[in-house]
Amino acid sequence: MKKVSKPRNLTTPLSQDVIASLRAGDECLITGEIIGARDQAHRLMFEMISRGEELPFELSGSIIYYVGPTQARPGQIIGSAGPTTSSRMDFCTPLLLSMGLKGMIGKGNRSEDVRRAIVKHKAVYFAAPGGLGALLGGCVVSSTVIYGEELGPEAIRLLSVEDMPVVVVNDILGGDMYEDGKLLYRKVL
């Protein structure tokens, strides 16, 4: 990929028009509120939805960041806060997308079910740079635990981020940055 265009600035919540304009491989900087939730949070959300209970945040239009940060030092907003592997959340993602979730931020490829649901519900999956928790922690300007304090790093958080660097992985047309990127440089028979 020989792109040198400047990253796009995105502000959450993302409008349907903005989501529709995003393409696999686009570099973006996200600013605004996102929800931090990973493994245990997804198991809990799945159970709440099964029981017909309300979720602790407004799912419709939201973006979930798969993150379990390190503990903040005194006076710090958050510690290291990079993405975790998204595929562990695949079991729950098509359901959340059907209920209005509009975006996910994580790392690694998604299942076929998730990719199909992204197209069907016109959503977007971004990759944040994995293993760069120190850098990404610096993009978080506020962090509040909104559910499951006892889960420690796995609690559900309302995060406010500024210029968080991400790349579009899956877009509404079925594009896949991981597949495209790999095929460009693959030299395997």
Binding site: M1, K3, G25, E27, V67, G68, P69, T70, R73, Q76, G79, S80, A81, G82, T84, P129, G131, L132, G133, A134, L135, G137, G138, P153, P165, V167, G181
Partner: peptide
């Protein structure tokens, strides 16, 4: 994008070495 990722990895290592945030969460 690959080069950019590698540059960010070096940058992240520098930030972590200041001692406030670990390299990875």
């Amino acid at each position: 994008l690959g080069r950019k990722a590698l540059e960010m990895i070096s940058q992240n290592a520098e930030i972590a070495a200041q001692g406030n945030r670990p390299i990875c969460q």
